[in-house]
Amino acid sequence: MIGYTLRTLIKMAVTLFVIVSLVFFATRLSGNPVDFVLGVGITEDDKQLLIKYYGLDGSIWTQYWHYLGSILSGEFGLSFLERRPVSAIVAERIGPSLKLIFGTMVFTFCVSIPLGIAAAIYRDRLAGSAIMIIAFLGYAVPAFVLAIVMIMVFSYWLNWLPVVGNSTFSHYIMPTIAMSGMWVAALTRFTRNAMLDVLSQDYMRTARAKGMPERVVILKHGLRNASITLLSVMGLQIAGWIAAGSVVVESIFSWPGIGEMLVRSAIQRDYPVLQFGVLSVAVAVILINAAVDIAYAYADPRIRLAKGT
């Protein structure tokens, strides 16, 4: 168990290092922030002063070295534009992002798992086929298309739902659905396949032979087994929302979260914010993966007991 944990930690550290380095070099390739921050008509002397002030003088390797050093000492720097510590900026934005992702997660799982089970049970009937056709169509609609269509219909024409902000429950409806969209379709499909696999197992016959009502057979004996397969997919989904989904959806709905911050800082060449934002997202994704591993072991006693010894 100690070896396993140690191995996992080393893997996480290596992954983080690679991501941190990639982000550093990628941002340096995209132009000088000083040109962007300053307007026209500034003198060359002032410009050099600012470059030095931001720590952008010296070779790229010197900057990289300083950057790594400051990360290790927990110093993530100040935003070029806001002159505030980037950690404070990110801290403000984590809350709204987490709420949105959590809402999306609950919505996706609550919709697609029951649908997938139903599609498996009624696979030979019209209902089962209908669910799968809808899921297939849903999979073909990207989040930004869904978002824009919803804004057109529910905000512009019907005037039912607000577009910008996150103050009330109704603010959550459209971003949540936009972010869930194709994931609902994918998870429905995965659930159906996992359940179909489980339904034909011998232990399901045993459960029925014991006189268990169909509800218990499906939910207790079936879903517990299917969930082992589903967990890894669900982990990927959550990671996908954190890393990619929130960037698109938060930008469309001006949601004050990490994703919107990343886009803005990239456009404005605000390196410290961008770097720390990406680092936070990477840490979150890695943590989710670790959590899935643990949940996986919990769901499947064969793995749990093998690792425990």
């Binding site: 011998d202 045993t206 032979a209």
Partner: peptide, 18 residues
Amino acid sequence: GNQISMVFQEPMTSLNPV
């Protein structure tokens, strides 16, 4: 499972693994 019960061939797969 109450008045009539069954035992199956494959003990390895007939019990729920989780």
